[in-house]
Each structure stands twice: as C-alpha cells, then as structure tokens.
C-alpha cells in the first residue's frame, strides 16, 4: 500500500447524502478479477447518459471543467452505505481521489478506504457546509496532513480524527496481513484453545 503523509488537491463537491456503493460502482462492473479497471465506471449512472459510458452527463459535477483533476471528494452524510464491495473505494482511488470528506461514512466503506490507503475524513456538519459553500463558488484546494493531523486551507484548519493504528498504517503504507502474521504464534495458540464445536 502506498504511504499517505500529505496531500494537497482540488475539491469536488458532490452534494448528495446517502451515496451508496451501488451508485459509486454499479453491479455490472463487478465482474473483474483484478483491482484495477474500475475508474472508468465510477458513478456510472450519474456520470454518463448512456449505458456504454460514452456520453458524459454535463450536469454531473465530476464532468464539469472547473473540477477536472480533483483529488478530494466532498460529500454529505452516510457516504458509502450499502454493499460491502471494495470495488467502490478502488474506483475512487483509481479515478485519482486520495481523500474523501463527509460528515459520516458507512462502517464497511470507511474500513475499506483505510485498508487501501484512501483517507476518509469525518468533519462536523458546520465544517462540511463551509467547505461546500467555498467549493461551489470557486476552485478550492485543501491539504490533508497526517503528521499534523489537520485538513487546512488558507488560515482554516480542521482536525483529522483517526485511531493511532489507522494513522500508523496509512503513514507507513503497512501490509496489514504481513503485520498480523507477526502474531501467528498467538493466533495458533488461540485457535488451539477453542472448543470442538466452534
């Protein structure tokens, strides 16, 4: 996993609550056996007018020139709800997003982001509203920094909340399986202690 220490990028404000993972990546694109090839289908039904993804929907915010090259996605509450498909954060990451900001995330989606090195940032409603106001007016660049655990622009600064271990894994690009296998002896011992029926 790539290390995440600091990132500065353009924000795209997606003004929707309850964006589910079916919207982020519809089911017809889940038949791949690789972790790549999903970016072209990100938000497919909103982004394209046709089923083949050849006619961009000019009304969808990701298609608007002002937000081209955005690498920070700003959304409303309960982002990433529904299906556990990790294809959703894979698509977000491959499209070029490093950070997703929302007032709340669905649990599985949040964990999936951390596990692949996309930084999910939870901010209070008021801060989210401020960011939406700014980002909808003119291009807004934000900096997320995991050394200082802050999200900043101009003289504004918001704290980034992560557990100590999440912060450590993101900053160091930890292979979580390799990390846990260091505890294999303990897992073996635990496994051997379980009752027969379990």
């Amino acid at each position: 996993m790539e290390k995440f220490i600091e990132h500065t990028g353009l924000v795209v404000p997606l003004d929707r609550a309850n964006v589910d993972t079916d919207q982020i990546i519809p089911k017809q694109f889940l038949q791949k056996t690789t972790r790549t090839g999903f970016a072209q289908h990100l938000f497919h039904d909103w982004r394209f007018l046709d089923d083949d993804g050849l006619q961009p929907n000019p009304d969808f915010i990701l298609n608007q020139a002002a937000y081209k090259g955005a690498s920070i996605l700003l959304a409303r509450e309960n982002f990433g709800c529904g299906s556990s498909r990790e294809h959703a954060p894979w698509a977000i990451q491959e499209f070029g997003f490093k950070v997703v900001i929302a007032p709340s995330f669905a649990d599985i989606f949040y964990g999936n982001c951390i596990n692949i090195g996309v930084l999910p940032i939870v901010l209070e409603e008021q801060a989210i509203n401020e960011l939406f106001t700014h980002a909808l007016q003119k291009p807004l660049e934000l900096t997320a920094n995991l050394e200082t655990m802050t999200l900043t622009y101009g003289d504004k600064s918001y704290p980034i909340e992560l557990t100590q271990f999440q912060q450590y894994c993101l900053k160091n690009g930890i292979d979580s399986v390799g990390w846990t296998l260091q505890s294999q002896a303990r897992i073996d011992e635990f496994s051997a202690s379980l009752p027969a029926w379990q």
Binding site: E86, N112, N115, V177, T180
Partner: peptide
C-alpha cells in the same frame, strides 16, 4: 458482519480481523 476484499484476504491468511 460483512467485510471488504482486503479484509477477505486478511481472514484467509490469518483467520483474524482487526
């Protein structure tokens, strides 16, 4: 509970989850 594919890999390899 449901898990993502990185976690599927973690469980396959370690029989545990964080």
């Amino acid at each position: 509970f449901g898990i993502g594919t990185s976690e599927v890999e973690h469980v396959l390899a370690t029989q545990t989850l964080r």
